[in-house]
Design a protein around this nucleic acid. Sequence first.
DNA 1: TGGTTACATGTCCCTAGGTACATGTCCTTT
DNA 2: AAAGGACATGTACCTAGGGACATGTAACCA
Lengths: 200, 200
Amino acid sequence: MSRCVLGSARAVGADKEAAMSLRYGLLGLLAEGPASGYDLARRFQEVLGQIWPAQHPKIYAELRRLADDGLIEVDSEGPRRRTAYRITESGVTEIRRWLAEGDVDHTMRLQPLLRSLFFWLMEPDDLDRHLRREVEFYSGMAEQYSAYAERKDRGEFGAAPPVQSMRVTIEAAVRLSQALADWARWASEHQPPAGHPSTE
Amino acid sequence: MSRCVLGSARAVGADKEAAMSLRYGLLGLLAEGPASGYDLARRFQEVLGQIWPAQHPKIYAELRRLADDGLIEVDSEGPRRRTAYRITESGVTEIRRWLAEGDVDHTMRLQPLLRSLFFWLMEPDDLDRHLRREVEFYSGMAEQYSAYAERKDRGEFGAAPPVQSMRVTIEAAVRLSQALADWARWASEHQPPAGHPSTE
DNA sequence: TGGTTACATGTCCCTAGGTACATGTCCTTT
DNA sequence: AAAGGACATGTACCTAGGGACATGTAACCA
């Protein structure tokens, strides 16, 4: 109770920064310039659709918490209750600290990998169909990101530092979706015979 | 209330199988043969360390729910309250249904990708250090999984269907960590000059 | 002027994931 | 015989994520 005089009430242990990636994601986007929750929600959707989905209710809530903590502040208010925020000095310090000192979380919670552990339970036909769809999905994704990367390389978005960083992020998306498409193709050729589950 | 006469109380919408990957992960592992919560926790840690972390409290809770739903049943009880479960016929049906019909979640919530969006905020030295560490991490990971794959290929674990599927999963892990190591190396060479955040 | 769409923010509630802590047993080693 | 470690299961609580639903405004166009 008494500890909440200033700053948001994120219970005890708020300092451990375990995850809180949405928080830093918003902070990072706001470092590029002022934006409203609505803007940020769209940016998250466009730029980070598959990478870091974020729903608008969470974004608005986190923005309020960031403001409570003084890492961002209201920049302007517009029509339709629009509230744009800008990052503060301590916000910049905080995201720089996170980037430089924060522990990187290397977890890859990829459902397709979990599923692949159980391919042996699938009928060959179902597995085949599944893998074809996966190849299609990841190839399409790789193509989309590649096209985006090309537009960046042609300079369509300028060459400001944030754009250059986004180019790096997109490169990762291209390489990962390519790798997963190749893997699914490889798996089709590596198909094991269907097995029989043990109900003992 | 009245809908909980049989089966676990997973509120309304339990049928929508949104995520619930842990549930199917456990079901899939149990399709290989009976195992206790402790066994499954260790398997999750060994096989799916970076891919699908699962803490034992969640595993035990989910096992009870699976048992309530009749998808698994108690196989044997041993010393120290050890309780091994085995999958039931309807459990097999359910995981096969999920594998064949369930929607695949293609989300890649990779924190390193989110971080890369904000590389432009980092001091060149910090960024360099960060990228070197990432290369090291992912190279090591790729090597570990490669070694594991080789042992599988030499037949050290037999060639039963579940082992063959795990080989496929490991292949994905190798390819992904390789891709991320390459990406981090590429990023070091693609380093943009540090930018100045806009506090307006 | 009426209807639709995009803008804009929010509440509520549930599931999923993660950590801390609690408890007790069996085995091995010293 | 004591002590420590691996085995084994659990409770409690918190954060993070996601969907459903609610509300209202401004712009556009037919």
